[in-house]
Amino acid sequence: MLLVSQVMSLLLLLLCVMELVCATSVTPSVHQPSLTRVRIIEVDDDYDEENSKTTHTPQSPGVTTSRVIRRPCDYDPCVVQATPCDKISAETGCLCPGLTGPEERPEAPELREVKLDRSGEVFVHWCAPRSIVTHYEVSLKDGSKQLVFSEYLRNGSLPGVKVGEMVCVAAGNKAGLSEKSCARYEPPQPDQAAVSAGIIAGCVGFLLLLLVLAVVLWRRRTCRKERMGDAEGLGNPSYTNDGAL
């Protein structure tokens, strides 16, 4: 009987131990803090700083905006023009190179060239200023020999200019004349190519002359030797070795 009671006590103790083990294996999951998953997103730092500084204006859906870029006019201020730049800008919407208004005096034109032309007059070439111009005045610095040219022109001829005189050009509109742009008329310089060609031609002609002279002298010497040989070969027919005729 005592043995049976001991066995029962051992069984109860084993059951208690098993329940305790099961309880300890389950409860830690209840008391442990919940795990938090962190999502890492990589961001590319390679971007254009200028684009990052650009702010975009929110637009209403269905609305499209367009931006018009104005380009410089196809205009060369140093070439004769059929139409002034301000009129080209009004027709095409292009941008002229900083044109001032007609109520302001023009800037001084740029005098590019003063030289003698084929007609014997002084040829003057200038570039238009960045202003609205209605005409150009070309004259000597003292104001004499003044000629007026159209706003479309960029060159003209001034007669009777002496070497060393100052030739000037000024631009004008209804607000007045600009400052004068002047240059001194220098004597025409010889064309270097023509001078070189003349020197070469002179050298070639001199060499040809020497060659012809050498041929003539050689020919004369040859003819003289031939004549002397002929004279020695003829002899005197009245002369004999024994002295008799």
Score class of each variant (00 low, 15 high):
Val43Trp: 09
Pro28His: 04
Thr57Trp: 07
Pro159Ile: 14
Leu207Trp: 04
Gly164Asn: 14
Cys78Gln: 01
Tyr136Arg: 02
Gly120Cys: 03
Val26Pro: 01
Val167Ser: 12
Val79Trp: 01
Arg39Gln: 13
Lys180Met: 11
Leu35Val: 15
Lys174Tyr: 10
Arg112Asp: 05
Ala175Arg: 09
Pro188Phe: 06
His125Ser: 09
Ser178Gln: 00
Leu208Asp: 00
Val63Glu: 02
Gln32Pro: 00
Arg221Thr: 11
Glu179Thr: 14
Ser52Thr: 06
Ala183Cys: 11
Leu11Lys: 13
Arg224Pro: 03
Lys53Ser: 12
Val114Trp: 01
Val161Lys: 10
Val161Asp: 01
His125Gln: 09
Gly205Asn: 13
His125Thr: 06
Trp218Asp: 07
Pro58His: 08
Cys96Gln: 05
Asp44Glu: 02
Cys96Thr: 04
Gln32Cys: 09
Pro190Gln: 05
Ala231Val: 10
Val216Ser: 00
Met166His: 14
Cys203Ile: 15
Ser25Asn: 07
Ala170Leu: 06
Ser29Asp: 10
Trp218Met: 08
Ser131Ile: 05
Met1Trp: 05
Ala214Gly: 00
Lys115Gln: 07
Asp44Ile: 03
Ile41Ser: 13
Leu217Val: 10
Glu104Trp: 02
Pro28Lys: 01
Glu110Val: 15
Leu14Asn: 13
Pro237Thr: 00
Glu165Asn: 04
Val38Gly: 03
Tyr47Thr: 08
Gly98Lys: 10
Arg71Lys: 15
Thr27Asn: 06
Asn241Met: 05
Gly62Thr: 03
Gly120Trp: 07
Ser150Leu: 10
Thr36Gly: 04
Thr54Ile: 06
Asp48Asn: 12
Gln189Glu: 14
Asp86Val: 11
Leu10Ser: 14
Gly62Leu: 02
Ser60Asp: 00
Tyr136Ser: 01
Pro61Ile: 02
Arg67Val: 14
Arg220Glu: 03
Ala193Pro: 00
Tyr185Asn: 13
Ala128Arg: 14
Leu140Gln: 09
Leu95Trp: 03
Gly160Ala: 02
Val133Thr: 08
Arg227Ala: 15
Val215Trp: 08
Ala23Phe: 04
Glu103Val: 12
Leu211Pro: 00
Glu186Ala: 14
Leu213Asn: 09
Gly160Arg: 04
Pro188Ser: 06
Glu179Ala: 15
Met228Phe: 11
Ser25Lys: 10
Arg219Val: 07
Arg39Glu: 11
Pro72Gln: 11
Pro72Val: 10
Ala197Leu: 09
Gly143Trp: 08
Glu110Tyr: 12
Pro237Asp: 02
Leu3Asn: 10
Asp142Thr: 06
Ile132Pro: 04
Lys115Asn: 06
Lys87His: 05
Thr55Gln: 14
